Amino acid sequence: MKVVAFERSKQGTGASRRLRNSGKTPGIVYGGASDVQLVELDHNALWHALKKEVFHSSILDLEVAGSSQQVLLRDVQYHPFKQLVLHVDFQRVDATKKLHTKVPLHFMNQETNPAVKLAGAVISHVATELEVECLPGDLPEFLEIDLAKIEAGQTMHAKDIVLPKGVALTAHVEAENPVVASATVPAAKQSDAAADATGETPAA
């Protein structure tokens, strides 16, 4: 995904306020062997880009003064109540060095799951993203979580996810192995099932 930015020379609260008043958003680019670079971006274009999941989880081609560099979006500061982006941070990536970043989770096949269709189970998405490590060229836009076979009462953990080649969970995620999805049967459904088994009608 390509992002166009422009060099800026002035910094400070006053300069940033003037930028925002003119429809621009201040930002910085850091990392690698190069110095920190001050940039500005068109606010409206940035606002719409931030609504796209891929903008948050993919390697971006950031063009500044005709020169392109690969970066990751690392931080966004929003105004507390206005639809306004106050500042953005981009980190340069090195194609030869592994990076740590969070990748969104996409849950698949929930509607066809037998526990949902037949037992009335409810599948909860406990996590929406996971932190992985990989080379920039191996970074996936998202990780697919197949919910076709999770059974009522079961949970799915980070280590249960089939990761793409070259992608691994970061050490702390590997150690914690957090729950990413769970399938539960609501109490009312359990009560109905017990009543069916005994032939009794549950008390109102």
Score class of each variant (00 low, 15 high):
85 V>F: 07
188 A>M: 11
97 K>E: 14
156 M>A: 09
76 V>I: 14
43 H>F: 06
142 F>Y: 13
193 A>E: 15
19 L>M: 15
198 T>N: 10
174 E>G: 04
101 T>G: 00
63 E>K: 13
32 G>L: 01
24 K>M: 13
11 Q>I: 14
191 S>F: 09
12 G>K: 04
93 V>Q: 05
27 G>R: 13
193 A>L: 15
74 R>F: 06
158 A>W: 07
45 A>G: 15
121 A>L: 05
166 G>D: 02
15 A>D: 10
32 G>C: 08
40 E>Y: 06
202 P>T: 10
43 H>S: 00
21 N>P: 03
165 K>P: 01
56 H>N: 05
178 P>T: 05
16 S>W: 09
115 A>G: 11
131 E>L: 01
143 L>I: 14
13 T>L: 11
28 I>W: 05
169 L>G: 02
73 L>S: 02
86 L>K: 10
174 E>Y: 11
131 E>M: 09
169 L>T: 06
23 G>M: 00
29 V>H: 10
69 Q>A: 09
96 T>K: 13
36 V>R: 11
203 A>V: 09
141 E>N: 09
117 K>S: 04
154 Q>G: 02
164 P>S: 05
35 D>T: 04
58 S>A: 13
92 R>H: 02
65 A>P: 05
195 A>W: 15
185 V>A: 00
163 L>T: 10
32 G>A: 09
141 E>A: 08
62 L>C: 05
197 A>F: 11
79 H>A: 08
63 E>P: 08
136 P>Y: 04
65 A>H: 11
37 Q>W: 05
169 L>E: 02
40 E>P: 06
88 V>T: 04
96 T>E: 14
8 R>D: 02
60 L>F: 07
148 A>L: 10
82 K>I: 00
60 L>N: 01
154 Q>C: 02
102 K>F: 03
32 G>D: 00
78 Y>A: 01
197 A>E: 12
68 S>V: 15
59 I>P: 07
61 D>W: 08
2 K>R: 15
52 K>M: 11
201 T>P: 04
166 G>S: 06
84 L>E: 14
15 A>C: 06
47 W>D: 11
154 Q>V: 02
194 A>G: 05
172 H>S: 12
60 L>Q: 08
136 P>Q: 03
25 T>H: 03
197 A>T: 12
80 P>M: 01
66 G>I: 11
10 K>R: 14
203 A>L: 10
3 V>R: 03
70 Q>I: 02
190 Q>A: 12
47 W>N: 07
72 L>H: 00
129 E>R: 10
35 D>L: 07
81 F>T: 09
5 A>I: 08
83 Q>V: 00
73 L>D: 02
185 V>I: 15
192 D>T: 12
74 R>S: 09
24 K>Y: 08
152 A>E: 11
24 K>V: 00
28 I>P: 01
126 V>M: 01
200 E>I: 13
52 K>C: 03
144 E>C: 00
68 S>A: 13
194 A>N: 02
33 A>W: 07
65 A>D: 15
163 L>Y: 05
98 K>N: 13
176 E>Q: 12
77 Q>E: 14
3 V>S: 04
29 V>W: 00
41 L>W: 06
3 V>P: 03
135 L>V: 12
175 A>N: 08
39 V>D: 04
95 A>M: 10
8 R>Q: 02
117 K>D: 03
20 R>T: 10
152 A>I: 08
97 K>T: 14
151 E>I: 01
5 A>V: 05
66 G>V: 09
55 F>M: 07
158 A>F: 08
117 K>P: 02
60 L>I: 14
